[in-house]
Amino acid sequence: EPLWIRPDAPSRCTWQLGRPASESPHHHTAPAKSPKILPDILKKIGDTPMVRINKIGKKFGLKCELLAKCEFFNAGGSVKDRISLRMIEDAERDGTLKPGDTIIEPTSGNTGIGLALAAAVRGYRCIIVMPEKMSSEKVDVLRALGAEIVRTPTNARFDSPESHVGVAWRLKNEIPNSHILDQYRNASNPLAHYDTTADEILQQCDGKLDMLVASVGTGGTITGIARKLKEKCPGCRIIGVDPEGSILAEPEELNQTEQTTYEVEGIGYDFIPTVLDRTVVDKWFKSNDEEAFTFARMLIAQEGLLCGGSAGSTVAVAVKAAQELQEGQRCVVILPDSVRNYMTKFLSDRWMLQKGFLKEEDLTEKKPWWWHLRVQELGLSAPLTVLPTITCGHTIEILREKGFDQAPVVDEAGVILGMVTLGNMLSSLLAGKVQPSDQVGKVIYKQFKQIRLTDTLGRLSHILEMDHFALVVHEQIQYHSTGKSSQRQMVFGVVTAIDLLNFVAAQERDQK
């Protein structure tokens, strides 16, 4: 057995438009009618409502009807409940999964919650491996369901041993009777949507819809739904939504950006999952974080739909894509998950301010006199920076000697690579993860907040409520011999709460 199987392995699926269902090699399930009293909570997966979006479509000038398939009504709160249950049931049916076995899954959280929910009911041990950027709410729900959680670096490539995929496979090879159901490759993922989600949409719309818009992560949702719609409703256009920084969209030119990270969760990847059939997507749109969270908040405030950030991405694209539809036509959007997962993220004004998705003037509360002053007023001194090749031991000596707790790590040209902190280095040394002679590049981390000289002290204040420091950066445009230009970030300084307090105190003292 291989040590790991690539999540982007070539698909062996034989589905073709027009091929009889009787030739399918898979076990198919028909939607079942729910009894009045459910035998367990797993029976509350599927049969989610279709809700008309009344205000947002009109606000953006849509002539067509805009409908939302509300997947956050599933038992675990997301569309991923469907595939989690289906993968477990299919693994039980073919004898792969037996009582007492362990389920391991690399996930952005929602599939993990679905699997942990099913594992709690069915009696399996469950280990979820997820990147650090995923919300604390997801972690809390997983723990409450009895799952064990392993976190991995957000910026690790999918084929790196440190990625959530790599760590999951390492655990599988170490733990007896453990299984990775593997949402990236498992046919049960798109089949769950082909058999149930798509049929529900067709039934709820009486077979009449002209466009379907869905955000894409593993691709199982859009693949399964689109294949069924292509068979039953061939005139329906399928629109895929991919965040900026991901590479799922086609044509490839759409993916060209210097951005590699994004805040919206559960969609987009740096590889093409095996289950994603991009041939059934008629057109791709890219979405960005700001519009995703703005539209998610709009869905909550104006439509009462308590959905997550990827739902915002989907609707932001839908109001663009559906401009081509006329009166009497219908566009369906998939709202994948609930706001429950993001209470401390985009639902929080403070978080939105820190990330730059909300401006101070958007909030009406009274601010102190210094709130709208610029960061450049602080008069920061030149920063202490270190090269990635310097040793951890030497870096600790320098920081202690100069009285700093942290320093930016830059390359020879001064471009920011990340940050090192005294606390992080000492804990890594004590844990045996690094040696004093190791290069400081081994303990770089990139989960820090950046701020510009033109940003306000109010925004800085919000950042420092949650973080010990902020890195002050400025952009530099560099022209190359080819005539092309590129933008790079340079370090201007490091600012802490002490710097802000000293500035405010000094100004008030001078005024007296």
Rank of each mutant, 00 (worst) to 15 (best):
I334G: 02
L387E: 14
H372G: 14
A292S: 07
A296Y: 00
N288H: 14
V415I: 13
L378R: 01
S348K: 12
S381L: 15
G403T: 09
S481W: 07
F271K: 00
D438I: 10
F492T: 12
I396F: 10
E303L: 08
R400S: 06
L464F: 08
N255I: 05
L358A: 10
K283L: 09
R488T: 09
I498W: 08
E475G: 11
L384Y: 05
E508C: 11
S437W: 09
E365I: 14
A321I: 03
V443W: 08
G458E: 08
A296Q: 03
D411V: 09
W370H: 06
H468N: 15
V440Q: 00
W370I: 06
G458D: 15
K345T: 06
T395E: 02
G441V: 08
A301V: 14
L417R: 13
G414F: 15
V472H: 06
K367C: 11
V410D: 08
L299Q: 05
I398F: 15
V494N: 03
W369R: 03
L429C: 12
Q259D: 11
L387C: 09
D438Y: 15
S428P: 15
R297F: 00
I390A: 06
A311F: 06
Q511A: 10
A321S: 04
E290K: 14
L347I: 09
A249I: 05
Q435D: 13
I477N: 13
L453M: 14
D349G: 06
L276A: 03
V504D: 10
V443E: 11
Q511L: 11
R459A: 13
T391C: 09
S287K: 08
G266A: 02
M352S: 02
L248G: 04
L460F: 13
G309A: 04
D362G: 12
T274W: 00
E291C: 12
A292M: 03
V317H: 07
V409M: 15
R509W: 10
F357Y: 11
M419K: 10
V375F: 09
E377G: 10
L460G: 07
L358E: 10
R350M: 13
Y479C: 13
L429H: 12
Q259K: 13
K402G: 14
I451H: 08
E258S: 10
I238F: 09
S437N: 12
T364A: 03
K402V: 15
H474C: 11
E412T: 15
